[in-house]
Design a protein around this nucleic acid. Sequence first.
DNA 1: GTAGGGTTAG
Length: 564
Amino acid sequence: MYGKCGLVQEAVHVFDELPHRDLVSWVSILTAYNQANLSHVTLSIFPTIFTLDGLQPDHFVFASLVKACTSLGVIKQGKQVHARFVVSPFGDDDVVKSSLVDMYAKCGLPDNARLVFDLITWKNSVSWTAMISGYARSGRKSDAIELFQRMPVKNLLTWTALISGFVQSGNGFDSLNLFMEMRREGVSIVDPFIISSIIGASANLVALKLGKQIHGLVIALGYESSLFVSNALVDMYAKCSDFLVAKDIFDNMLIRDVVSWTSIIVGAAQHGRAEEALFLYDEMVSIGMKPNEVTFVGLIYACSHVGLVGKGLELFNSMITDYGISPSLHHYTCLLDLLSRSGHLGEAENVIKTMPFKPDEATWAALLSACKRHGNTQMGIRIADHLLGLKPEDPSIYILLSNVYAGAGMWENVSKLRKLMATGEFKREPGYSCIDLGKERQVFYAGETSHALRDEIFGLLKEVDAEMRKRGYIPDTSFVLHDLEQQEKERQLFWHSERVAVAYGLLKAVPGTVILIVKNLRVCGDCHTVLKFISSIVKREIVVRDANRFHHFQDGICSCSDFW
DNA sequence: GTAGGGTTAG
């Protein structure tokens, strides 16, 4: 009773006073620790079951231990518990098997989960849901859907597991389609869990209009007081470019937790509002809210994007010494980005060499793009050669490599890369830009010139181009990857997807409204210049969210101050 | 006395 009411100390007190303890007493206290988020205590006191009382764990104990391993994410110990369970007299228990399915699923091992799932004698909705959730959050779309369809009776939790799993693995469109199917089937969506998932999907898709509709639903259902829902809304508005609304919702929240603070700090950072992010952090600390590892990712990111190297380093150190958070690869990548962006390339390379993690492709890529930005061709080539040796799978890395070699005029390497990309196993995701006009959503791929409004778009871009040149625009063709004549290079830049999308927006969006473009890659340097020109020529605010951050173009300047 | 769904990260 004390454990389930969140009074773990009282539970421990009674437990310690028991004149005689049986397995039920033990499971009660193990569960109390699990519920109080003290799963490490659950695991550490487990051995005393033998030493103090000479008892052998039963299936109830195993289920509690597995749950503890799941919430701590300690798969190695989880496997040890699994082994003990298998050889125990309770090795057939279906509840423990379900908890193991959940453990493997949550630890990103859906195949291990499936092996256990198939051994469950009587599968109930808990086992099915755990397995489906595991596939969905690992991005195993077809496996998740197939199992979902085979499941005899689906309930709200199963739908939520599937949909939120897809949101978490970045499959926003699939999650949205499933949500609509769920509504068609008449499943009630009056539930804060499913609502927060769909808000997450809107954020994922940068679908502001959809997000606003769900926000309306939140108000109608009275879920504004739900912490999870409000946190999701703050994140959604920030990700959909409306930082001010995000801030407004944040300001009006009656209860805020570390996720609320972190969401608004990360949002400020992504919009280039570093001062605000740092101010919010001071406020957070002053009210006694403890930042977590994600908060520091946001803070260092904020510093990185405005060149506050000293402050960023200070925060990195404070994270370790003041908060006892040991830096993850994420943090090192942020640190490296902080240093390399502002030109401290040598120190950045030193971080890569001395950090206790094996640098992944993204880490090298951060350094590589800084080399290009700061014109350190020699170091760029050295790192590019090294990266090429690692045979990266991420296609965007090849684009970066091409950039380096093309910038250095090493066309032989460029064509070698192109061949690699053509024959490679991976599918290269082409650059695209997307504009959301509410009921209509248009995607433009780089170089695509076959759109129905092609002539109007071309005409508009041509007109703007002439005006830009009058104002001193010179195309920067170093962003073109192929060895071509100057004129052809300029033509390639001309059809970069963000420009086409902006032109389309100027033609179709309601006059006077902000034009919001989402791009899957980083905006190229030349397009960045062009968008600044366009914003002043047409006197419209243009917002581009690229792979990295937001750019707000207005009156010829960008919120990133050309440092991105 | 045991197992399943929600928010933040380069």
